[in-house]
Amino acid sequence: MNKRRKLTDKLMTILPILSVLITILPLISISVYLVYKGVQYLNVQFLTELPKPVGQPGGGMANSIVGSGIVVGLAGLIGVPIAVLAGIYLAEYGRKTKLAAVVRFFADVLQGVPSIVIGIVAYAVVVIPMGSFSAVAGAAALAMMLIPFLTRTTEEALLTVPQDVKEAGLALGQPQWRVVLGIVLRSARGPIMTGVMLGIARIAGETAPLLFTALNNRFWHNGLNGPISTLTVQIYNYAISPFTDWNGQAWSGALVLVLLVTGLNILVRTLARSRYSERS
């Protein structure tokens, strides 16, 4: 190899390394700021109290943290059963049908729909008929985002279960639905649970679909039919506010959000892992 080719080779292989470093830079910056700024307003008060009126120091995001839990939990209650059943249809009953192909196609494409669009659709479908912003509307919007993703994850998880296992169940005289629920779904519950957690973590971080559905609330929510505060919307409102006190609380809220979401993820993953080892 002549010198020039050798040199270009060296130089050009440095570029990918450089791009890795540049890509990781923002991640480091975000993590450092999240921890450094986040801990400043993070205390017991922040986790247990309602927001204080403008100008009064202190107060917290207790209502937003609980609100996020309610809205996301409700979205899971709506979305998970539908998505898992749809996944069962795609993997078991309609595997090679045209309908399944169409459902698969749209489930994939729906994942790319901007979340703000889902938000205004949920506004039109739930908020207008109900006559009020509500936790239910927010949950409906998040469920609309969860279902396409989880349908495909469930399907893929079910497809990993070997055919012999199913046939063994059928040979024992089990009706097909018992085989699907008792054997196929059970064997695939690990990857399905991982999918559920990933989906929940994803929707827990969503803000745009909640802006015009769950809205926000400076107090505790009053039932599921009224506006409710969520952590993400509260972070947004506090971040764009002109008050340094609120800006600081936005960082603490962000830290709590990240800890909750990743904490949940790690918890479920380790739980699932220990269960498996127990069984085997």
Partner: peptide
Amino acid sequence: LASIPSVIYGLWGIF
């Protein structure tokens, strides 16, 4: 990087 909620990117963006 993919799992960071977009509102947190925005927060970092502002400050």
